[in-house]
Design a protein around this nucleic acid. Structure first.
Lengths: 206, 206
DNA sequence: TAGATTGTTAATCGATTAACAATC
DNA sequence: TAGATTGTTAATCGATTAACAATC
């Protein structure tokens, strides 16, 4: 399926296409075109076609793409045609918001455990989960074989906790701490920082 | 200061440099080099120098950059040498987490008002703020002249609320709803969606 | 069939890197 | 001074766009 390496930048756009296609599917639409999909996500039709064609011939001349079929293919490509168990590390405000977030459903992810190092929180319930002691985190994650984690601890602890996640065998970290994490090349890190996103916009304001 | 247009992609990296420089400053370090800064954020030294040199000659051959001076310049360039009032729209879990978030301090942003349309929430306190009725949002934002908003309403309402924000004169929207927003070209939109970030990583997992 | 839209090629455009003179 | 590091140029690399034959 991957004869040659697909650029990161293309992989990064696929989830956005997927999200838009799922909205179309929910509305009961069955077919779309590169033009329509492009307008809905703000990307040129040519680029949509080029991106998709990296993985196969999923469209039909004259009619466009079957939304159902394209969703299926994108789910397979992104490996979210399954459910990834996710460890949530840090039971503060952001951790609570993520634990309650409904948006992971049907997108390939399910939070299955929560860790914190605060004795006052350990043992408490957060949604459906009991908060586990972070001291046991490495062992538990190694045993369960979880590969994906979300990191919502304070910036001052983030690198140390990330190192422990790497030690645990975690291969994908979604980092909410406002700090650039160092990780080995085989561990993927994505970063969410509202300040970075806001500062990207103020440049353009008066 | 901007003789020619600076590419978006460069502007997008500046907040990351800034965050790393601020961490260095907090540690009491006074000078850095493109090599050191590049290693800390995972970008080549050549690119760091090229990016920074778009805006002036802020470094010194042989010694590198004064961290204090470079922070000052980046703050000015990104227009966060001031404090932008921010409207938070949506008082759900994510809204609460943002209202309590300490990370906006000293980064150029301050949430100054919170809106929701749920009668049960209107009038309640969320941190230091009273939750206002979203029905009055357009008028209040117009009156106060706020330009920046964070949108944490359900996906089903997000486009309608975004349209009202645009009507209010908002020029920068940080969107937490899992949907691609349409906005006029003079309104900047940034999107934070944990599912998109997670799906970007699973492609690379086994 | 006629109209629409794909997949793909070639051309254009833009971003990154390597190298080095300038100079602190 | 000698060593280090910038700012900048030119070369390389990669991404986007435009165009169109193929074909549904």
């Amino acid at each position: 399926m991957n004869p040659q390496k697909i650029p990161d930048i293309i992989i990064g756009r696929l989830p956005v296409y997927l999200r838009s296609l799922q909205h179309m599917a929910e509305k009961g639409i069955s077919t779309t075109s590169s033009k329509e999909l492009g307008e809905s996500v703000g990307i040129s039709a040519a680029q949509i076609r080029k991106d998709i064609s990296q993985f196969g011939e999923f469209g039909k001349q004259g009619t466009g793409y079957s939304i159902h079929f394209l969703i299926k293919k994108l789910n397979e490509i992104l490996k979210v045609d399954r459910v990834w168990d996710v460890a949530l590390v840090g039971a503060g405000d952001i951790g609570h918001a993520l634990a309650h977030y409904q948006g992971f459903f049907n997108c390939g992810f399910k939070i299955t455990m929560v860790f914190d190092n605060d004795p006052a929180k350990i043992g408490e319930q957060i949604g459906d989960f009991e908060i586990f002691d972070a001291a046991n985190m490495v062992e538990i994650i190694q045993t369960t074989g979880i590969k994906v984690a979300m990191l919502t601890v304070p910036a001052s602890e983030a690198q140390a906790v990330a190192d422990k996640l790497v030690e645990s065998g975690i291969k994908a970290i979604l980092n909410y701490a406002p700090i650039s994490l160092n990780a080995p090349p085989d561990v993927h890190v994505q970063h969410i920082d509202p300040v970075v996103h806001l500062q990207r916009m103020t440049y353009y304001l008066d």
